[in-house]
Design a protein around this nucleic acid. Sequence first.
DNA 1: GTCTATAGAGTGATAGAC
DNA 2: GTCTATCACTCTATAGAC
Lengths: 191, 191
Amino acid sequence: MPRPSKDPAQTLAILAEVFREYGYEGTSIGLITQATGLGKGSLYNLFPGGKAEMMTTVLTDIKTWFETHIYAPLQAEPHTPTSIQSMLDAVTRYFHSGQRVCLMGVLATGHQRDQFSETIAHYFTTWIETLTASLERIHLPHHDARHLAEETVLQIQGAIILSRALNDPAIFQRTITQLHNKLTPPAPKAK
Amino acid sequence: MPRPSKDPAQTLAILAEVFREYGYEGTSIGLITQATGLGKGSLYNLFPGGKAEMMTTVLTDIKTWFETHIYAPLQAEPHTPTSIQSMLDAVTRYFHSGQRVCLMGVLATGHQRDQFSETIAHYFTTWIETLTASLERIHLPHHDARHLAEETVLQIQGAIILSRALNDPAIFQRTITQLHNKLTPPAPKAK
DNA sequence: GTCTATAGAGTGATAGAC
DNA sequence: GTCTATCACTCTATAGAC
């Protein structure tokens, strides 16, 4: 190897955190060099496509993380209330109880939505569909499962905003608890 | 008068729309001059504090709008289901069924949160407290009213994100309908 | 020497402030 | 319009593993 290069995984993690904190426009290359300790040369060698490629790489990394830590437990047969619980636990950890922003949510409200629209839509669609399938496997008819899944993802996003706006992680925690109760069937009684 | 000046209210409206669309960092003075038709000189005459003052002025304007169109109907005695409905109607119109972003929500997730934190927190706090008071006047105990109010504001924010991410206004509409059912007592039966 | 990842001065364009 | 600072990005030079 030509040089003692840094750990690419850690570089990506730092990059993701900077994008989360400052948004796409708010993140300057100078800020990235400072945060990662990498010079511009290294950065443009790693990401020839510049800032846009840095963002898409981060988004792909997030997608992979969600597949492993959020979707996989939901898809594990057989479905148990534990699957739901482990998803909500992972979500709570990932979003630091609402104090850490959802990059996909941030991008969805910015004008970069157009640039990354497919990735953003795919992220939310996959999450909703995986959760829908999981809920269908317990007891819910497709329509109800779908709406409940949408409501879950929606409330997590809303909880992040409100929790951050009021600087109160309790709001996020309360939302997660509430979702847990709603998603976990209190009794195996069909409609 | 030295010059035929433009309508300040319309200028402010345009300014708000640009900030919503591009965020704080994403909005350049050049973009503002283009959108408003005002030269840089006029802008810095109107807002000596520069971009930051433009944003604070917009935020104050939004606050006033909400007081008039959202809070006032909720505070009107006596409380009726119509108060809730008119709030939700105003919200739907204001956010263009989720296709128009909430500037306070956007700022809450950015690193400008620190700069405007008081205004942002005040916006959400006032909304929640007004709705709480309104719900208490029907039938709900304080604790329940407060949680329901929080849930309402939270779901509206989440609906904007999800609705925009999936480019589907129906999600926002469905959320509003759901909130209407939850906020409007189906029967005057106490706990 | 060859190669690759590094660092960082330098590029023009554009930012916000005045 | 004019200013300076900073932007994203380019490019040259080089350090070190083969």
